[in-house]
Nucleic acid binder design. Sequence first.
DNA 1: GTCTATAGTTAGATAGAC
DNA 2: GTCTATCTAACTATAGAC
Lengths: 226, 226
Amino acid sequence: MDAPEPETSSDEVARPPVRTPGRYRKGIAKREAILDAALPVFGQVGFHGASLREIARQCGVSHQSLMHYFPTKDELLMAVLRRRDERLRRHFDDAGGMRVDELVELAEYNVDVPVVISLFITASAEAVSTEHPAHEYYRDYYERIIRSTTAYLSVAADRGWLRPGYTAEGAARVVLAVQDGLQLQWLYERDSVKVADLMRLVIGSVLSVPTADLDEAVREEARRGR
Amino acid sequence: MDAPEPETSSDEVARPPVRTPGRYRKGIAKREAILDAALPVFGQVGFHGASLREIARQCGVSHQSLMHYFPTKDELLMAVLRRRDERLRRHFDDAGGMRVDELVELAEYNVDVPVVISLFITASAEAVSTEHPAHEYYRDYYERIIRSTTAYLSVAADRGWLRPGYTAEGAARVVLAVQDGLQLQWLYERDSVKVADLMRLVIGSVLSVPTADLDEAVREEARRGR
DNA sequence: GTCTATAGTTAGATAGAC
DNA sequence: GTCTATCTAACTATAGAC
């Protein structure tokens, strides 16, 4: 067991051999504050445009203190991204795949948090470059979200519930594309773009049955062992 | 009237009033070479991530020579963007608005020029920030492409050729969103994403008639003075 | 706080194209 | 001879990292 740092009364505390920042109450709170401050900065100016000093300034933390919690800029970005997409990722492994309504609900939720949309659009576009620290992250993200949504829509495909021409994967890609594209438009014109409404319309153009029916079918398939 | 600055015959020679780079043969060619080199760099690392020295290196031009042609980084980016979207912009003012097939054809064309897609996706996402040099550019771009496509689809709306639920603007936004979103997916997985095919499917889900029929109707409306 | 690297930008002088 | 193209040099600010 590792000895808990004594926090002795001396001002020169011995540096522990392994750095494990964010273990004490104060550290945990500060870590969260840094992530909160980093989110909008990355979202507004992108990874390259963001500066650690600026992020530190935003949350009243010294530059050096920030680097204690996140040794490198790459790690800070990854921590910000991961904290924000858990809502979606936890559905990736749902039995029967991810409901398309989940994507709509996420879009509805995001409208209240514009910085999150901004972060995700900006980061996913920047990360197209293989050099980008989040490249692998987004490659994996898109692969899994498509695979999961495709699995869900496959049940519809098997029952002939997809409109002519669509495959399960094609439909999944369209729904995801509409979400991304509309969110981008929304960032430019927040009053005129109704992301969730249009997504529901598109889903209605892809499925010939209500999503509730498909949900029911998917649950049944999962119940039968699948 | 303010006295025209004498600029007497002192040894302080008058600075030529305007600098106009790119007037000689050699200069024109070099200007083009710089733009060609800047396109992929901006597309891969974004505006903030790109360095003028790197762009200059890519096309065998000195850093200072580059700055002779493009006095600031902002101007270079704008020149790159403008040169690449003329294909689309020249349809903005088409009588009757822009055909949706034009968007599909552009997507088909873009597949051969991945750097252009990368540039546009990255720049449009980065430029969401009002500080970004291309912010006004993209704001105007989206407004005009939506307005133009909406005008085209209004003819369909008037004749009841839109699927239930869609307005002309809603349909226009969906088609554009699908284009943007699929192109982003395509950048991550170039073999699996058929951008143009899926776009045509979506257009078929939005319109209840073939686009050829709508084209004909739009031409007729334009002929009748509109 | 310091270090090192690199960013964008500017100035001035020379050589070359028109 | 005039304007353009190019190069050498330097400046100022800021980056991430130690």
